[in-house]
């Protein structure tokens, strides 16, 4: 499997898109920190941008990469290699390349400008989010045979988690504002990896007061150390479950 990771990584790193991705992230991070005199504000703006761009690039780039590599995957499958090894190799290669781009783009400025604890949580969530959306991309790519449909589905997935899910939550909150639904809200939040990441970072930044009563409840739950660990574990599950499903589909897929 290591050999497959090596070749996928080599292939992706030479790809100009990933370089561009790292560059854009770097540009955004540096300029945000230079614009804001308060580094906490900088982190807050950066969080919002990171939580939009990272999932988008991770899922779209990975989906396109997997479809474009279909003949390469065929070549590998016709060699004496186990299918799970091939699939895991692609996952690891994609994730590592995109994580590297993220670390270079966002990691460096964060370490220089931001407070250690906040920088760390933003980096960790960014890395996990990368893994989650690569896993979702691979699930999409294994489910939809057609490239155009696959990319469309990927955009839908991103749109859902980045924008629509929030809207639905808000709608729910307003519709049932007379009922005690805070606990349900916490449960529902775990259905969106981006929201989990946002809450984790916002609570560290101590701006949860902006989130009102629910925010207070979130703080009570996610603000504690166990809460943070639970949220992180949930996010890791968001990598493992989609990837596991895609792996099982790939094992029996006709190429």
């Amino acid at each position: 499997m290591n050999r497959i990771i090596k070749y996928v990584l080599l292939d992706i790193i030479k790809n100009r898109l990933v370089l561009g991705y790292a560059l854009i992230l770097a540009l955004v991070s540096w300029s945000l920190f230079n614009l804001e005199d308060n580094s906490a504000k900088g982190v807050l703006s950066l969080t919002n941008i990171v939580l939009l761009i990272v999932p988008l690039v991770s899922i779209i780039f990975s989906t396109i990469y997997i479809y474009n590599a279909s003949e390469f995957i065929e070549l590998l499958v016709s060699q004496p290699l186990k299918r799970p090894q091939i699939w895991m190799g692609f996952f690891a290669g994609l994730t590592l390349a995109l994580m590297l781009a993220f670390l270079i783009g966002v990691g460096l400025p964060l370490l220089i400008y931001a407070d250690g604890g906040i920088a760390l949580i933003l980096l960790i969530t960014g890395l996990i989010i990368t893994g989650i959306f690569v896993a979702l991309a691979m699930l999409v790519a294994v489910l939809a045979r057609d490239k155009a449909r696959g990319i469309g589905l990927s955009i839908m997935v991103w749109l859902f988690f980045a924008l629509i899910f929030d809207g639905l939550m808000l709608l729910l909150l307003f519709q049932f504002s007379d009922y005690p639904i805070e606990k349900t809200m916490i449960g529902l939040t775990s259905l969106s990896p981006i929201d989990l990441a946002r809450i984790l970072i916002l609570l560290r930044l101590d701006v949860s007061a902006l989130m009102g009563f629910t925010g207070a409840l979130f703080k009570e739950f996610f603000g504690s150390e166990t809460g943070e660990w639970v949220a992180l574990m949930l996010m890791v599950l968001w990598i493992l479950i989609p990837f596991w499903i895609s792996l099982n589909r790939f094992k029996v897929k006709d190429l």
Partner: peptide, 13 residues
């Protein structure tokens, strides 16, 4: 040894 009808390989190599 398998020779596919249309071989497409990683373009960067």
């Amino acid at each position: 040894g398998y020779m596919p009808q249309i071989g497409r390989y990683p373009g960067n190599l």
